[in-house]
Design a protein around this nucleic acid. Structure first.
Ligand SMILES: [Mn+2]
Ligand SMILES: [Mn+2]
Ligand SMILES: [Zn+2]
Ligand SMILES: [Zn+2]
Lengths: 144, 144
DNA sequence: AAACAACTTTGTAATGGTTACAATGTTGGA
DNA sequence: TCCAACATTGTAACCATTACAAAGTTGTTT
């Protein structure tokens, strides 16, 4: 992912570019780690020392408002963000805290934009919780 | 729902009863409003003036740990709770903040306890967001 | 180029939900 | 009754998020 592409992506979502917005959007588009504000701030503040946490908060809120990124509330402690705005599900490992992408059920997907029991559906979220493959492997190793 | 039933319910989940636990569990079992800690505290503190917010927090955490209630993270500001632990989906109205119950997709339900892409699934959540039927009606009224 | 208005970023302070903790109260068995 | 384990309470601390005002940036007009 080039900076040029990120610029195009921002413009496509009616977001006026700035150095900070490009950096944050570029981070989201090149990392599939579903980062928190703090993770993004730590990752970027080395290259951009004047960056403020408030800017990260404001910018992410702007992105979400313009449909350029998703806000996940799967963890009750911290909000996390996703540069992949396609309809997909998430798996939260309760051991290591990592969030994985999973496909979303088609029957659920189909309800976007429809009416369900009189309510208009504008957003869909599907969350799995459990123990991830990596943590299962580590668990088995430690038993040997 | 009688207090006797609530007592039975707590015992069935290996929770030692107390006046506070009975009151909170009884509130959850007789209200389908997906209350926050504050809502429960306000509702019960009139009848039980010494009740502490901390007790509500501790007790709900205990309930969730014993599978006697569910914790919902659909709203990013406040945790809400559900005395109905059956598998079902939730609809959050972004206008009025109410949370409604909806059926959960069967294909999604079936994945509980299974392994998905190597991850063990122990919990499932399906969230809809949008505008509820009541808010739609009010919107229409105000246009006339 | 200077002036200006609109917009953006920044740092700090405030907010508010949640948790930690120590003191107090309660319960049930020896 | 005594005692130990457990539960509740109120306060303080914590920490993610938001509010706010000052400082910086950008693009436009003259
Ligand atoms: Mn994702
Ligand atoms: Mn429910
Ligand atoms: Zn894991
Ligand atoms: Zn509504």
């Amino acid at each position: 992912m080039k900076v040029k592409d990120t610029l195009t992506y921002l413009k496509a979502h009616d977001i006026k570019p700035s150095a900070q917005r490009l950096a944050i959007m570029n981070y989201l588009l090149t990392h599939s780690n579903h980062p928190t504000v703090e993770v993004i701030y730590q990752a970027l503040s080395t290259k951009m020392p004047t960056l403020s946490r408030t800017t990260v908060y404001n910018t992410l809120k702007l992105f979400v408002g313009h449909g350029a990124s998703l806000s996940l509330t799967i963890d009750d402690q911290q909000q996390s963000f996703d540069g992949d705005t396609s309809l997909h599900a998430h798996f939260l490992c309760t051991r290591c805290g990592k969030i994985y992408d999973l496909p979303m059920d088609d029957s659920f997907k189909n309800q976007l934009g429809k009416t369900v029991e009189g309510h208009i559906v504008t957003e869909l979220h599907q969350y799995y919780k459990g123990v991830c493959a990596t943590c299962i492997k580590n668990e088995i190793k430690s038993l040997k």
